[in-house]
Design a protein around this nucleic acid. Structure first.
Lengths: 195, 195
DNA sequence: CCTACCGATCGGTAGG
DNA sequence: CCTACCGATCGGTAGG
C-alpha cells in the first residue's frame, strides 16, 4: 500500500491532463474534456494554469529533467567498465519510465506540439541526452569492450527498445523494474559485447 | 534515377496527406492545410475522398497489408532454423518500413484516431502480426536455438527497435535497407542466441 | 470557481 | 473544381 498523496489542484490538473493526453493525444484533447475529468467548468481551469500548452510543457520538461537526474546519479558513481556504465544508464532510464508510465508516453508522443522557444529547448535537451549514450558507447569501443559499430545506430536501437516500454508495461504485472532492466540489458548488450 | 510515377489525384492526395499527418499529426492537420498543399480549395477535396478519416484509414491499412504480405513471402520459403525465419521476418519488416518511411510513421503514431469498427480491426490485425513473431520465438526456444525468455517481452523489444527506424532513417544516407537489416538483426538476435 | 460569451477554426454540404 | 456557407467546437477572456 502506498500512502495516499495529497495533491493540490494544480497537481491534480497535471495528473488528469496526463491521462487525457495519453489516451486521446494532446491535440484531440479539449480543455472541456479536462474540465469534465476534474469536475469543474472549463474556464475555471484558467485560474490554475495559463494555457493548454503550459500543461504539456510542464509534463515534458519534468520528465526530461528526471531522465537527466537519473543519468547524473550514475555518472557520480565509480565504474570499472563502459559496460557497467551503459547498463546503469539503461536501468536508470527504465526506472524513470516505470515511475511515470503515462507521463513518459506523453513525453515521447506529444512533445512535437510544443511551440518555440520550448520546442527548440526540448530538442536540444534530447540531443544532449543521446550524446551521453553515444559517448559511453564510443569509449567502450575504444576499450575493446563493445563490437565496432556505428554508435548512432546502436544508441537509437537501445533507446527505441527502452522507450517502447510504457506501451506495454503493466504496473500490476509480474515484472519489477529491476527484472525488466535486467532482461532488456541482457538482450541488448550481449549482442554488442565481444565474447 | 527512378522513373517519375504518374499519380492520379487521389494518390496525390494520399501522398500529401501522409506528409502532413507525419509532420503535424492527424488531429492537428486540417483539411484546409491539405487543400493548400495540393493547390485546390478545401471543399474540392471531397470530390475525391469522403472524409478526413478515410485518408487515415487508407494509409493505415495499406501499410498493415504490406507488413502481412512481406511476412507471408517469408513463410512460403523453406527454412532450416527458427533463427533464419526470425531474421527474415526482421529484414522484411525493415524493408516495408524503408519503402514507406512517412506512411509507416503515420501508421505507428496515428492509428489510434481511427473510429470503430476500423479501430478494432486494426488492433486485431496488429495482434495477429505480433503473434507470428511470438510463434517463431517459442519454436526457437523449444529447439534450443534461443535462450529461454518471456516471448512477449522479446517480441516487443524487437518490434520497438524496428518501429523506431522511420524516426531516423535517411533515404539519402549511407545505409541500404539490407545493411540496416543486417546490423539490427545481429544486434538483437545475438543477444538471444545460445552460444 | 461560475455564467456568459468571444473570434477563430473545424469537417463537411449545397449547388453549380 | 469553385463560391458560399453551415453547425459544432475550439482555446480563452470578462466580470463577478
Amino acid at each position: 500500500m502506498s500512502k495516499p498523496k495529497k495533491l493540490n489542484r494544480k497537481q491534480e490538473l497535471e495528473l488528469k491532463a496526463t491521462e487525457l493526453f495519453k489516451e486521446k493525444g494532446y491535440t484531440a484533447s479539449s480543455m472541456r474534456d479536462l474540465a469534465t475529468k476534474v469536475g469543474i467548468e472549463a474556464p475555471s481551469l484558467y485560474s490554475h494554469i495559463s494555457s493548454k500548452e503550459e500543461i504539456l510543457r510542464t509534463i515534458c520538461f519534468r520528465i526530461a529533467n528526471e531522465f537527466f537526474e537519473a543519468i547524473e546519479l550514475v555518472d557520480q558513481k565509480a565504474h570499472n567498465s563502459s559496460y557497467t556504465i551503459l547498463e546503469s544508464y539503461i536501468v536508470s532510464h527504465i526506472q524513470v519510465i516505470i515511475k511515470n508510465t503515462s507521463a513518459s508516453l506523453v513525453f515521447f508522443n506529444e512533445w512535437k506540439h510544443l511551440s518555440e522557444p520550448y520546442l527548440g529547448e526540448f530538442k536540444s535537451k534530447r540531443s544532449e541526452y543521446e550524446r551521453r549514450f553515444h559517448r559511453i558507447l564510443k569509449k567502450g569501443m575504444e576499450n575493446n569492450e563493445f563490437i565496432e559499430m556505428d554508435e548512432k545506430f546502436v544508441v537509437l536501437t537501445i533507446l527505441s527498445a527502452l522507450n517502447w516500454i510504457p506501451h506495454w508495461y503493466d504496473p500490476k504485472g509480474k515484472w519489477t523494474p529491476e527484472e525488466i532492466g535486467g532482461y532488456i540489458s541482457r538482450m541488448l548488450l550481449h549482442g554488442i559485447l565481444i565474447k
